[in-house]
Nucleic acid binder design. Sequence first.
DNA 1: ACACGACTGTTACATATGTTACTAATTTAG
DNA 2: CTAAATTAGTAACATATGTAACAGTCGTGT
Lengths: 154, 154
Amino acid sequence: MSLVLEEFLPYRFNRLAETLSRNASVAYKSEYGLSRSEWRAFALLGQKGTMTATEISYYSTMHKTKVSRAIFALEKKRWLAREVDETDRRLERITLTAQGEKAYENLVPKMQGIENELIARLGKQNSEALFKGLAALEKLYLDKETASRSQKAG
Amino acid sequence: MSLVLEEFLPYRFNRLAETLSRNASVAYKSEYGLSRSEWRAFALLGQKGTMTATEISYYSTMHKTKVSRAIFALEKKRWLAREVDETDRRLERITLTAQGEKAYENLVPKMQGIENELIARLGKQNSEALFKGLAALEKLYLDKETASRSQKAG
DNA sequence: ACACGACTGTTACATATGTTACTAATTTAG
DNA sequence: CTAAATTAGTAACATATGTAACAGTCGTGT
């Protein structure tokens, strides 16, 4: 009785996740020196506009301390600015600066290019299969409804 | 122009990899207190028999220092034993002890059960699509021929 | 009004990981 | 044969991450 690590799904996912991320990170790392967590927070701010740290944490699936550090680094770069919410002084509303927006507009097409090339190299059949499979997995494990219910249950 | 993080492939893979690994880790973590890297090294030793640390590193895609630490932890548990190779005294041939084998025989069905349940919940259509997509990705990015060639090129 | 609990974000501490430097053993080139 | 280069594995250092504790703010109930 034996388990073949190479065929074990969690391992396959980890290996591919690491490879795809390393591949994509070239764009934001070499040109801007961003870390992966900084990139995630940054991408969310560019996508959604003003957010709080807690919201970034929620949508990026990153621990709040990780978000806190990522935000700090982006602030030091002057890519974002914070403003205390006057109606609830615990909250900080975080927004990209003009400089941050500019970097975002520059970076997004490159990131999309990397993904598009990947999909093109996969071919239509394979990428459609991949997306179908990923969506099904996400529905099982990451569906917000399901997830929050099972969290409260646990 | 905007990139939707939730739809970005490297992010989706990282999120799913983390979720699947956390899900699977319950078995080896709660019962045996193994870490993820210890589990990987252990699974390989159970699967392939005697190996060197370098071989474990190669097949587990883990840095050699990570492997070194994982092996040390498993040795402390008395789950493996090392023997210096007399024909090349740099090498250590690592093998599971009887105790390690026993744990392996106990753990493997549980890990397979976790994976089988996942696949069952996905359904035949979705899991077939998933496997097709993953295999295509692995062929693109992890094929040993391609990888070693591009490594030497880089 | 005010005590209590809950929430936001940061800091301090412990742990995990990667990079580099190292020892010991072997192989290769001359 | 011997010096230089290579390999296996470990250790030291720096960095990254998670856990726990914390300060400040808010909402609730009395």
